[in-house]
Design a protein around this nucleic acid. Sequence first.
DNA 1: GATAAGGGTTCCAGTAATTGGAAGGTCAAG
DNA 2: CTTGACCTTCCAATTACTGGAACCCTTATC
Lengths: 130, 130
Amino acid sequence: MNIGEISEKCGLPAKTIRYYEDIGLVTPNRSDNGYRHFNANDLHKLTFLCRARTLGFSIEDCRILMALYEDETRASSDVKSVAKQHLTRIDEKIAQLQSMRDTLSHLVSECAGDNRPDCPILNDLAAVKG
Amino acid sequence: MNIGEISEKCGLPAKTIRYYEDIGLVTPNRSDNGYRHFNANDLHKLTFLCRARTLGFSIEDCRILMALYEDETRASSDVKSVAKQHLTRIDEKIAQLQSMRDTLSHLVSECAGDNRPDCPILNDLAAVKG
DNA sequence: GATAAGGGTTCCAGTAATTGGAAGGTCAAG
DNA sequence: CTTGACCTTCCAATTACTGGAACCCTTATC
């Protein structure tokens, strides 16, 4: 199938699929007219990539996971290790955002939000710490 | 003061301060030798920027907030509005990460993590939906 | 006076993962 | 034969820096 069709099926934009070919994540064949020709295995790979990216894995993680996916002699512990590391990174990010959120929502609640210039949000931002 | 000193005080790397000058967020004077010379107002601005970035505001948000900071006739409602929008974006991001986290931690818990190749994580990633 | 250390300067390139757009080739239908 | 929907490649932009090269300024030391 052509790139438009597989794009529909795997959930990735055609542009992204071409990019993934560029960086060596997939290597579709070419038809005589120069069009990329994708087979069922390509569909599996691209679906895999789409899903992994949706779960926030980096492209480099995806590369590792794809290699494991294609290696029939892998140990599931290797996969689990990559996933757990990613989970840790997600948790760190959530904690960081939560901390931002807490500070910011406190500031927002303090601010009158009227037409006077006095503003606790700006006051906080501009405060030079000792 | 020179860039090294103000960098210490405001918490931003010298490189970042130069970048902020490039994009017009600060405009320090220059000494005769061509060195940037920062005053107390520059320190306030850069501290402001450092804090706002720490809270996750984008550079463009910072630009808006800085303009409000410098406008003595601002309405605090304008500041609050920017902050609330940002808060919404943070909440969305947290929700998205939380959803990734839930899915991933479920998969991780299902995976034996031993030296056998069978792996629910890879199975999930490769599954072509509907 | 030479030199070395520790500032400072500019400018160019790279990061992550796409995305947008231009210029142009291909194919099926009317 | 032309129109429209595909496809192709290649270059540039995005966000917010960061690294590095090549070079200048200042001060202290030999």
